[in-house]
């Protein structure tokens, strides 16, 4: 489409201003993180020299290697569990016929809207009663349950659009449902599965409330939870906090920059198809 030069200039101006508005706080964090501690701490300043000391300091004073390991363990577990369970359930909801299907599906769907507060209070007491609080299980299983609402919904939508003839052909050749699912339906669905995994990974990595309530040992703290405690101990050391914040946000932000199309389309489609 041809766009007049003046219109294009206006568009670039508006987009530029608002993109800047979106990234200025982030750029501020990065600048602050490489600012030597002798410089002014708060505000937006160009650092007098490029100094990675804050990262070293944050890494050593906080237990960030522990927090990252914990986050990684929880995130990978939730992603694997959610994708396997969602692929099976999504396939059944999309392609198999069984009584109670709609009721079960709408129950799952309700989980998409509910705030975590709606289930976390009794869940804490239930898990404490079972001796499961302050363990990886208390982080992994509730977050898997939360992700399943989205995952099942997402996979069902994906599998519904899968051409039925191809599955029929597989069945004619004598393949079982299970074989049809894993050999015929799943391989071409890998892009959709990847998108689901990315979104679930992002939500799990960034989750704050569930770790806050479920764990008390420092070595189980996830990265955002560790950062919140770190912030409480170093309230005005902004450069140190900026470095710590960068460490916590970086893994997902990097993933996002490499796979931004999947993130954006996944979030917009996943949500708009609710």
């Amino acid at each position: 489409m041809r766009i007049a030069r003046r219109e294009a200039a206006l568009n670039y101006l508006v987009l530029g201003v608002f993109s800047l508005f979106a990234v200025v706080p982030m750029v501020g964090v990065l600048l602050s993180a490489v600012t030597p501690t002798t410089d002014p701490q708060a505000g937006f300043h160009l650092p007098s020299s490029f100094d990675l000391g804050n990262f070293v300091e944050a890494w050593n004073r906080g237990q960030f290697s522990t927090y990252l390991r914990s986050s990684l363990t929880v995130t990978i577990s939730v992603v694997i569990l959610t994708s396997i369970l969602s692929i099976f359930a999504g396939f059944a909801f999309a392609r198999l016929h069984f009584p109670g299907k709609n009721v079960l599906f709408f129950l799952l769907l309700a989980g998409l809207m509910l705030p975590a507060e709606a289930f976390i209070i009794p869940l804490y007491y239930d898990l404490r009663g079972a001796g499961l609080t302050d363990s990886y299980w208390a982080l992994i299983l509730p977050q898997t349950a939360q992700s399943l609402a989205f995952g099942v919904f997402w996979m069902r939508n994906q599998f519904r659009t899968f051409p039925g003839e191809i599955m029929e052909a597989g069945k004619m050749d004598g393949a079982s449902d299970l074989r049809v699912l894993w050999r015929i339906v799943v391989p071409p669905s890998v892009p959709a599965i990847t998108t689901m995994c990315l979104l679930v990974a992002m939500w799990t990595w960034n989750e704050f409330l569930i770790p806050l309530i479920m764990v008390s040992s420092e070595n189980l703290r996830t990265a955002p939870l560790g950062l919140a405690f770190f912030q409480g101990q170093h309230i005005t050391e902004y450069s140190l906090l900026a470095a710590a914040g960068t460490i916590v946000a970086l893994p997902i932000v990097l993933l996002y920059f490499f796979l931004q199309r999947r993130f954006i389309s996944g979030m917009l489609n996943g949500i708009s198809s609710r």
């Binding site: 960034n206 955002p224 950062l227 912030q231 900026a242 914040g245 946000a249």
Partner: peptide, 9 residues
């Protein structure tokens, strides 16, 4: 970006 990082920012 993690909401905790947004908050500290």
């Amino acid at each position: 970006v993690s909401s905790v990082v947004v908050a500290t920012t």
